Amino acid sequence: MTPLPDFAPATPATPSSAEIRRWRRYLADERSEAAVYRDLAARRAGEEREILLGLAEAEARHEDHWRTLLGPHVGHPRRGSLRSRFLGFMARHFGSVFVLALMQRAEARSPYEADVHATDAMAADEQIHEEVVRALATRGRNRMAGSFRAAVFGANDGLVSNLALVMGISASGVASPVVLLTGISGLLAGALSMGAGEYVSVRSQRELLEASTPNAEARQKVPMLDTEANELALFYRARGLDPEEAETKAARVLRAPHTEPTGPVPVVGADEHEAVGTGLGAAAASFCFFASGAVLPILPYLFGLEGTTAVIVAAVIVGLALLSTGAIVALLSGGSPARMALRQLTIGYGAAAATYALGLLFGTTVA
Rank of each mutant, 00 (worst) to 15 (best):
residue 112 Y to F: 12
residue 219 R to M: 11
residue 71 G to Y: 12
residue 266 P to Q: 11
residue 290 F to H: 13
residue 177 P to M: 06
residue 228 E to V: 06
residue 176 S to H: 02
residue 293 G to R: 02
residue 367 A to T: 06
residue 181 L to D: 08
residue 281 G to H: 11
residue 103 M to A: 13
residue 40 L to G: 00
residue 212 S to V: 07
residue 141 R to T: 05
residue 258 H to E: 15
residue 363 G to H: 10
residue 335 G to L: 15
residue 24 R to C: 07
residue 24 R to V: 05
residue 61 R to T: 04
residue 183 G to E: 14
residue 186 G to R: 05
residue 109 R to E: 14
residue 106 A to C: 02
residue 63 E to Q: 09
residue 315 A to K: 03
residue 258 H to P: 13
residue 161 S to C: 03
residue 81 S to Y: 03
residue 342 L to Q: 03
residue 228 E to R: 07
residue 74 V to A: 14
residue 17 S to I: 07
residue 19 E to W: 04
residue 127 Q to V: 04
residue 348 G to F: 12
residue 130 E to I: 00
residue 176 S to C: 05
residue 184 I to Y: 06
residue 136 L to P: 01
residue 41 A to I: 00
residue 77 P to I: 07
residue 272 E to H: 04
residue 258 H to Q: 15
residue 326 G to T: 11
residue 363 G to E: 14
residue 158 G to C: 05
residue 362 F to V: 15
residue 180 L to S: 04
residue 206 R to A: 14
residue 282 A to T: 09
residue 67 R to E: 15
residue 146 G to L: 08
residue 17 S to N: 08
residue 67 R to W: 10
residue 358 L to E: 12
residue 101 A to F: 02
residue 274 E to N: 06
residue 118 A to Y: 11
residue 293 G to C: 06
residue 158 G to A: 09
residue 12 P to M: 10
residue 197 G to P: 03
residue 9 P to R: 03
residue 77 P to A: 09
residue 55 L to F: 00
residue 199 Y to H: 13
residue 103 M to Q: 15
residue 115 D to F: 03
residue 1 M to G: 09
residue 36 V to I: 14
residue 358 L to D: 08
residue 28 A to K: 10
residue 155 A to D: 09
residue 259 T to H: 13
residue 62 H to V: 01
residue 26 Y to E: 11
residue 222 V to I: 14
residue 8 A to R: 12
residue 286 S to I: 10
residue 161 S to M: 03
residue 288 C to G: 08
residue 17 S to A: 13
residue 196 A to H: 07
residue 26 Y to Q: 08
residue 110 S to Q: 06
residue 360 L to K: 11
residue 313 V to Y: 10
residue 21 R to V: 12
residue 41 A to S: 02
residue 36 V to Q: 00
residue 282 A to D: 15
residue 152 V to T: 02
residue 200 V to C: 02
residue 196 A to Q: 08
residue 48 E to I: 00
residue 312 I to W: 13
residue 208 L to E: 15
residue 132 V to Y: 00
residue 117 H to S: 08
residue 168 G to M: 12
residue 112 Y to T: 03
residue 169 I to C: 04
residue 314 A to Q: 13
residue 126 E to P: 00
residue 348 G to S: 07
residue 285 A to C: 07
residue 163 L to C: 07
residue 115 D to R: 02
residue 269 G to V: 04
residue 48 E to A: 04
residue 238 A to H: 10
residue 313 V to G: 05
residue 150 A to G: 04
